[in-house]
Design a protein around this nucleic acid. Structure first.
Length: 357
DNA sequence: TACGCGTGGTT
DNA sequence: TAACCAAGCGT
């Protein structure tokens, strides 16, 4: 006994009502054209969609402006130095996105004459573009009909249709239901309207059903329990790890290394460590024999899948001697330009605030 | 297929 | 405060 079977007529009404609401209430965003003003620059749509993967609108804003000012199109970005792009991405997280961003820009230049392809199937082949992003770009930048499903849409649609199967098993049903209400025209506006709805009205904890433009069609509203959707399986507890980082200072410079190309914080500049990972604690073995001094303060950081407490050991290094292993001496006065991920920024702050060096 | 992958805001 | 969550993707 399906709670609600949307009729064809009803399905059309959903898009119509949602788009009418969007025409009046669309959020103004740096990468967005307002309804009726045509399609946004595909480069801007692509860049914003990559940045917005698992990332809030508020966090993306400044990065989007920096990137579009520094690299205004695919050709400029494709010609950029990898290290500059990684440094510009520092702090935004999920650094594989930045590496794939560059790969993608270079493919667009070499294979597509610097113009993003407009078909979902072609977009899907590009680095960093998955099912969601391919559909979003095809619809938003090129006006093609595509079924755009992100976490917002999953929440809205699971409520509309009272889909009680837990995620991720519910994904096929949700995609089918989304397909059934996606209009032939204005699929891009429809997708953005669904995401605006999910970000504002149809929120996770306390949805504002009384002002929702598609309340009339919502099975969960009718049942009085929108907040139970989407159902999700419980998450496993995240482990706690500890380890060390090592601050090696020589003549107002600090020794920085580049992390491995794969895994956590891949390819990012970093301080030397004692081998801690998401799975194991560090072994507390310093990268070299030296007069190490342990700082009284620790740094705590929480990743997606584990939390970490870092101890900090500092030493001063003989003048003119090279640091241990591969690395570079980075001037302390421009440490903010090193593009350190947030974990190591916390460490540098702790060291510099400690004073004793 | 399920897991690894950042960070900051919210409750 | 600890847990949850965000315009997901690659492997």
């Amino acid at each position: 006994m399906p709670a609600v079977q949307q009729t064809d007529q009803n399905s059309g009404d959903i898009a119509e009502r949602l788009l009418a609401h969007y025409d009046v209430h669309a959020r103004t965003l740096p990468w967005r054209k307002l309804p009726g003003q045509g399609f946004a620059d595909p480069y801007h749509v692509w860049l914003s969609e990559i940045m917005l993967q698992q990332t809030t609108v508020a966090a993306v804003g400044a990065y989007f402006r920096t990137f579009t000012q520094t690299w205004p199109n695919f050709a400029a970005l494709a010609a950029a130095d990898d290290a500059d792009v990684m440094a510009a991405w520092a702090g935004l997280g999920y650094y594989a996105r930045a590496r794939n961003l560059l790969k993608c820009a270079r493919v667009v230049v070499s294979e597509y004459q610097g113009q993003l392809p407009s078909y979902e199937a072609d977009l899907l082949k590009l680095p960093g573009i998955g099912p969601y992003t391919a559909a979003a770009i095809a619809a938003i930048a090129f006006g093609r009909r595509a079924v755009v499903v992100d976490a917002n849409v999953e929440r809205v649609v699971s409520r509309l249709f009272a889909i009680s199967t837990p995620l991720p098993q519910a994904k096929p049903d949700i995609r089918e239901a989304t397909d059934s209400i996606t209009p032939e025209l204005r699929a891009g506006d429809f997708a953005q309207a669904m995401m605006d709805l999910g970000a504002g009205i149809c929120s996770v904890r306390s949805p504002s059903c009384l002002i929702c433009p598609i309340q009339f069609a919502c099975a969960a509203f009718r049942a009085g329990n929108p907040e139970i959707y989407p159902a999700k399986l419980p998450k496993s507890a995240k482990p706690h790890r500890s380890g060390h980082v090592y601050w090696i200072e020589r003549d107002a410079h600090v020794w920085l290394q580049r992390r491995d190309d794969r895994g956590l914080l891949a390819g990012m500049r970093a301080l030397p460590d004692d081998g801690w990972t998401a799975r194991i604690d560090g072994d507390a073995i310093a990268p070299a024999a030296a007069n190490w001094q342990k700082l009284p303060t620790q740094v705590a950081h929480i990743f997606t899948h584990f939390s970490l407490t870092l101890n900090i050991a500092v030493t001063s290094w003989p003048a003119d001697a090279d640091g241990p292993g591969e690395g570079e001496w980075w001037p302390l006065k421009s440490l903010d330009k090193a593009g350190l991920p947030t974990l190591f920024r916390k460490v540098t702050e702790a060291v510099l605030n400690a004073g004793e060096r």
